[in-house]
Write a protein that binds this DNA or RNA. Structure first.
Lengths: 335, 335
DNA sequence: CTGATAGGCGAAAACGTTTACGTAATTAAA
DNA sequence: TTTAATTACGTAAACGTTTTCGCCTATCAG
């Protein structure tokens, strides 16, 4: 590197004080336009950019936010990040990414390590492995935090979610209207509000159509791919459901594979429907009926809320923002 | 926040100097074990974590790297990020994400903004919109930088890539062996070494089998989805190729859609093969023969190299690391 | 007993900003 | 004309670390 160019250097070359330079750079009203222009042109000429560490240290602002999520290699989360990034760019913020891999301890460790002033705020979609609000109840007191999709309820924090209950209800009704009466449920996120709402929507839709739910038709997501596959195969073999309603994307591949392996035709023998943001849903064999969440918009909304908080703007209404999911009917439900 | 706990506070409570505390926290040999233990226990007790800004400012180390990529919502890049993140966690580094959306100006703006000490190093996969090595030739002199997948050649920097030429050659041969002789090429990344190598592999494979390539059978990626779709439809209608070799994932959906709309059966009427990291490739209708790059490993390798550089370790051999892609034959090439 | 050596610690400067406060000159109000 | 207010800038402290240098004590060789 050549001679480091900092405020002192600018001040020397212009024969003014470093305070004046700093204020000019920050467009302070204390400085005359003439001086500001001198500073700005020299700064551009020397390619000056302020040292973030020094600035952070003094001002206690980092212009950085953290995104803490289970995993980036998931359509929903990568789309959310895109939305977050778009807004962050508009506000001139930087984005740190942390993946928890559904590990609650990693989650706590990350967020704790962010409390020393590394970031101005946090956007998070929490791990599904546990639901213990104690930790977050304390955390939200210490740093501006916005939850999206996977949230903790009853905390003093903004939450951006989707209409899980309503859309699950609607999707279940769609299956019923297609003639299904023995609808299996592939249960994911069971610890979280989102997972519970989806399940509740499913149950209530059954009930409102006079169908009694059965525990035998419910299987729960496990971290082991093989296990999920064999679970589904067992389910199909033993209880012969006429539909599979999957509450998470991770069940799609094992569900399709299970049907193939058992020689079951979708949608003739069994209909399939899933929450999913896969762009290839319409190319699957057969094309998959999906509930897709507006992942990109969720990211945008969450980021917007966080920046409003960081700039002390009043949040429009309340702390719960609920966006609408979309049910797209395709061949796998066949009607 | 309660009373801020910093080094000064620790020093006061222990009746020692802040220098001693700092050295103890950093496990310096100058400090006795007894004193270190006193410091460590109190630090843990008070939940002390060092202020990163202060630390960065003084030491000129940020323990942070930047990842500059076109887009996170792409299987290849999100998997790469996973690999990068895994290694970063091992080394205790933080990861900043910047998306260029294939915009070379944004790319330059981001990387420039990282030169003032915000990060210790950069991992990047460059934009495909242009190939102008001047900028990067200067950049690599200013900051440790590792390219992955989409690289600039002939620069003094580490590059992690895949065997694009060889695998494209091999894939083309596969199509030929399946009886194809009129193989269309869906050309992406044409400005970049990766894109050129893939195309070269395709051309050379044709030549080595006595097939003359034709310009009419090559179409180039465009940013407009509709345009790509109609391009492919035109191609299929006018020149009736017996295979589509797509060099990028983005062509898959339009290619499948085009075949459907024209009533062409895959693989009977036309075979399809594509570079892709889609996990649903095997569930498509029909399942898609793919060349999948080891995205996760690429991220890992790139990150490992960067950290070696940052710790002044000798890089094992040379600057080019080449990983192997995998050709997975499925129904879409039907043999 | 003297001198050297090493171990353990502290004083203080430095990193590059921001900002509270002071000051001088100019302008407006009286 | 005097005073008050305003404008434009400078001084210096502060943010929380890291690190150089020096000091003191204890130990050891001679």
């Amino acid at each position: 590197m050549a001679e480091t160019v900092n405020i002192k250097r600018l001040a020397q070359e212009l024969n003014i004080s470093i305070a004046t330079v700093s204020k000019a750079l920050n467009d302070s009203h204390e400085i005359s336009l003439k001086t500001k222009n001198r500073v700005w042109t020299l700064a551009k000429e020397l390619n000056y950019t302020p040292n973030p560490a020094a600035s952070n240290l003094r001002s206690n602002k980092t212009k950085t936010v953290a995104v803490v999520i289970p995993c980036v290699a998931n359509n929903f989360f990568s789309l959310s990040i895109m939305g977050i990034e778009e807004i962050a760019r508009q506000y001139g913020y930087h984005v740190l990414i942390y993946q928890t891999h559904e590990n609650i301890e990693a989650e706590k460790a990350f967020t704790n390590s962010l409390l020393n002033g590394r970031v101005d705020g946090i956007l998070t979609s929490v791990s599904s492995s546990e639901y213990n609000s104690e930790y977050y109840a304390n955390l939200v007191k210490k740093i501006p935090l916005v939850f999206f999709d996977r949230v903790y309820e009853n905390l003093d924090a903004v939450k951006v979610t989707t209409d899980d209950y309503e859309i699950a209800f609607q999707a279940t009704e769609h299956l019923i209207e297609c003639g299904c009466s023995k609808i299996a449920y592939l249960f994911g996120l069971e610890n979280l509000p989102a997972g519970k709402s989806r399940f509740a929507g499913y149950l209530d839709a059954l009930k409102s159509h006079g169908i009694t739910a059965s525990d035998e038709l419910v299987i729960r997501y496990h971290d082991d791919e093989e296990f999920n596959l064999s679970q589904i195969k067992e389910l199909l073999r033993n209880y012969k459901p006429d539909a599979l309603f999957s509450s998470i994307e991770e069940f799609i591949i094992p569900a399709y594979c299970a049907c193939r392996e058992l020689g079951l035709q979708i949608p003739d023998d069994v209909k399939v429907l899933s929450f999913s943001n896969l762009s290839t849903a319409k190319l699957l064999s057969p094309s998959l009926t999906t509930i897709s969440q507006p992942a990109f918009e969720i990211g945008r909304e969450a980021a917007k809320c966080l920046f409003k908080i960081l700039h002390n703007k009043q949040l429009d209404d309340e702390q719960n923002i609920i966006l609408k999911s979309v049910l797209t009917k395709r061949e796998s439900t066949g009607c």
